[in-house]
Each structure stands twice: as structure tokens, then as C-alpha cells.
């Protein structure tokens, strides 16, 4: 154990945040990853139809491979993300977990919050989702909660606004 840091003998572990994001986020993640794959596949089909003869063998191999990879990515990634993406807001702290292959947890004290933003991209509007971004004075630590339902997002913002108003100081 880490004696120097004074970690107690009874080991504690960090549990994941309590709340999941909205289920529609799965579809949102699928939809936002799909265009990249579609472009790749379309480019290869065009190359296969119009391309030089000696490259045909190449496309015949890579095209099915791309389709397979795309299918795997579009099926696995959103589900995996949905299992990982979580958030929790308490009067003292904001806690998020995100990622899929690489995962990250971020914790920031409410007393250090600088701004609370909500935003919705075009895809997110289609799926009626809202992102909440909480920034601190550090450029490295914005906490993003992706894929909340609009009402949930507003509730989070209201709560954080109320909590941060109680704080004083410039939070750096």
C-alpha cells in the first residue's frame, strides 16, 4: 500500500457514478459513427467500379473487411459506451465516467466550477438529447455529460447553478 500518502488500511474503491445517460444515446452514437464508415465504404465501391484493373483485387479484399469492421464497431461501440457513460451530481461534486475502449472518470468540486453549459448538435437534436459541459479554471478538466434527456439536463444545470451561487472566490 501507499504508506506515504496515508492511505488507510481498509481499502476503499471508487464506485462508478450513479446515473446512466438516456437510452436514445445508443442510437445517437451509432448514427454519429455511421457517416465515417459510409464514406469509407462508398469510396471503395466507387474505386471498385471505376478503378484500374490491377487494384480490383485489392478492393475486393478490403471492401468486405471494411463492412465487417463497420458492423462490429457500430454494434459494439454504442452498447459498450452506454454501459460506461455515467454521471452524478451532488451538492459538493460533479462526477462523470465516459469512454469505451479507454475510459475516464472526472471529478470536480462544485466550488471550483466556472461555467455550466448545455449544447445540442444536429444529430443530438434528432435524438432529443442534450450535453451538459461543466468547466473549471483548468483547461484540462471540462466534465462532459453526453446524451442526457432535455429535462434531465435542465435539472442538472439548475442544481449546479444553485449550488455554485453559494460559493465565493474566483475558483482558481
Amino acid at each position: 500500500m501507499c504508506h506515504r500518502c496515508g492511505v488507510s488500511e481498509q481499502t476503499l474503491q471508487l464506485r462508478p457514478p450513479r446515473h446512466r445517460v438516456h437510452r436514445r444515446a445508443i442510437w445517437y452514437w451509432t448514427a454519429s459513427a455511421a457517416p465515417m464508415w459510409l464514406v469509407l465504404i462508398a469510396a471503395q465501391i466507387v474505386a471498385l467500379v471505376l478503378g484500374w484493373g490491377w487494384l480490383r483485387h485489392w478492393w475486393v479484399v478490403t471492401l468486405p473487411l471494411t463492412v465487417l469492421l463497420a458492423a462490429a464497431h457500430l454494434v459494439v461501440m454504442p452498447q459498450w459506451r452506454y454501459r460506461v457513460h455515467r454521471w452524478e451530481v451532488t451538492p459538493e461534486a460533479v462526477y462523470t465516467q465516459s469512454g469505451w475502449f479507454n475510459q475516464e472518470r472526472r471529478i470536480a468540486p462544485v466550488s471550483r466550477i466556472q461555467t455550466v453549459d448545455t449544447d445540442r448538435g444536429p444529430f443530438e437534436q434528432i435524438f432529443r438529447l442534450t450535453n451538459v459541459t461543466v468547466t473549471t479554471a483548468s483547461a484540462a478538466g471540462p466534465l462532459r455529460i453526453h446524451g442526457l434527456d432535455r429535462d434531465d439536463a435542465l435539472r442538472v444545470v439548475d442544481q449546479l447553478t444553485a449550488d455554485t451561487q453559494a460559493e465565493r472566490g474566483d475558483a482558481t
Binding site: C5, S8, Q10, L12, Q13, L14, R15, T90, A93, P109
Partner: peptide, 19 residues
């Protein structure tokens, strides 16, 4: 976890559970 908890006591407390 221990280091983060010891450095800023209290911040992680609500999110900690026994191993």
C-alpha cells in the same frame, strides 16, 4: 483512489465504497 482521496479529503468520500 487513495492518493486522490488523501490529497483532497472529502471530495471523493460520497463516491467511495469498501473494496
Amino acid at each position: 483512489t487513495g492518493l486522490a482521496d488523501a490529497a483532497l479529503p472529502g471530495l471523493l468520500t460520497p463516491f467511495l465504497v469498501p473494496a
